[in-house]
Design a protein around this nucleic acid. Structure first.
Length: 417
DNA sequence: TTATTCTGCCC
DNA sequence: ATTATGT
DNA sequence: ACATAATGGGCAGAATAA
């Protein structure tokens, strides 16, 4: 956040004649103290109203110390949404929220949607996680929202997740009994490990990503805590989740702090039928700086001038250097997808497209495996089929009034495309 | 005009 | 997104 | 605890090439 820069510009400045001014009254406190308070004020105001278009005119008109009275949280100005921190398991959740009430909700795999109702209920805007205006993307939400509001509600901000849904197959969906457009979220409040474990499994079986864990009493206050919710996904658990044994067949030169090292690798699985290495993804995370340097040195001797004839990769995935197939690495992912560029299991699930993996990261180097022992194309295809499920389009909605008087309503709002 | 590549956003 | 790292 | 900086797949729309 840039509030420090902002502060300097507001509390002081230079007149055209070159003299400087400071817009702070001396209340008997030191300058450092006053600056600290000023910073706090601006930070607080900015967190509720993160818009320079709002802040600057208000500052010029009313001054710094009256800013909180004139620049408040309101529909039309998107705030930074609460985020969630990755968590290793239910025991870690219990540990972190030892003295707090909390609830767990399904973590739907969609797009964050912050919905603003304003102008006496006449106007709706929808913002993304990064406060981009997504309103044109969701005409159906805009159309349906008025019918989902309690009578008299003409101003609110809703925070939720928009998720895909195939209406043809809604019978297989866990929410099918819930025909209405607005329902309470599927959530569980419990401190029982087994019960929560079961709930996590149900969430995964329902083809969601896992659970979001939220304290029940804390205010929605992104100024103080950027990640005060917790997220619990199956693939965070050690020894759980999809892993692959893959072969690095190429690499790109690293940038910034990875200058001089390979910064990312091109990974392939092995198809014994065609005796080819087929690209499944790139890899750029999961290694410490030390490991990264080590891997660079390990692979450098295996650079070859041109790709092997039996490599299959996408034209847009041309690495800076190619390797002979010598190493096997274990990588973990969250999901598999049909890929426009990668070639793993090409022809097995889709005639022309291969399969790729979502959120790949290194788990460990497999010294015990040879490249021919890498995950096979058939295994990849089978894993894809296992996870292929119909998708839902849902909006999880959190209603809140203001940061000191928070009203939590968790809804799901269903819509179709 | 259309096809391809690039960019910037989502996760 | 994930992960590692530095303040 | 938090912010920053490396990096991932995929998609849509913009920019560019043909």
């Amino acid at each position: 956040m840039k509030q420090q820069t902002c502060l300097r510009a507001r509390v002081g400045g230079w007149r055209p004649d070159g003299s400087s001014w400071v817009q702070i009254k001396d209340n008997g406190v030191g300058l450092a103290e006053r600056l600290e308070r000023a910073a706090q004020t601006v930070k607080q105001v900015y967190s509720e109203c993160p818009s320079y278009d709002e802040l600057i005119p208000a500052l010029l008109k009313h001054g710094l110390w009256d800013l909180p009275q004139h620049c408040k949280f309101k529909p039309s100005v998107p705030i930074k949404p609460m985020l969630a921190k990755p968590t290793n398991g239910i025991s870690e959740v219990l540990e972190k929220f030892k003295d707090q009430e909390f609830t767990c909700e399904y973590k739907y795999d969609g797009e964050r949607a912050q919905i603003h109702l304003m102008d006496g209920g006449k106007k709706i805007m929808i913002f993304s996680r990064n406060s981009e205006n997504m309103t044109p993307k969701y005409p159906d939400i805009v159309a349906r929202l008025p019918g989902c509001l309690a009578p008299g509600v003409d101003s609110c901000v809703l925070d939720g997740e928009a998720v895909g849904w195939d209406p043809e197959h809604k019978k297989i969906l866990p929410f099918q009994a819930k025909e209405g457009e607005v329902e309470f979220a599927l959530a569980k409040t419990s401190r029982d490990i087994e019960e929560l474990e079961t709930f996590l499994n149900e969430a995964v079986d329902a083809s969601t990503e896992g659970l979001i864990v939220k304290t029940l009493v804390d205010a929605y206050d992104p100024s103080k805590r950027s990640s005060h919710w917790l997220k619990l996904k199956k693939d965070y658990l050690e020894g759980v989740g999809d892993t692959f044994d893959v072969v690095p067949i190429g690499a790109w030169h690293g940038k910034g702090k990875r200058t001089g090292l390979y910064g990312a690798y091109l990974l392939a699985i092995y198809d014994a039928d065609s005796e080819t290495y087929q690209t499944i993804s790139k890899l750029g995370t999961g290694f410490s700086e030390e490991k990264l340097a080590e891997l660079t040195e390990l692979l450098r001797p295996h650079v070859i001038p041109a790709p092997r004839r039996y490599y299959q990769w996408g034209e847009t995935q041309e690495p800076d250097v190619w390797f002979a197939p010598v190493k096997v690495w274990e990588v973990k992912c969250a999901d598999l997808s049909i890929s426009p560029v990668h070639r793993a299991a090409q022809g097995l699930v889709d005639e022309s497209k291969g399969i790729s993996i979502r959120f790949p990261r290194l788990v460990r180097v497999r010294e015990d495996k040879s490249p021919e022992d890498a995950t096979s194309a058939h295994q990849v295809a089978e894993m894809y089929r296992m996870q292929a499920v119909e998708r839902v389009l849902i909006l999880m909605v959190l209603v809140f009034q203001d940061r000191h008087n928070v009203v939590w309503h968790h809804y799901y709002y269903y819509y179709y495309y």
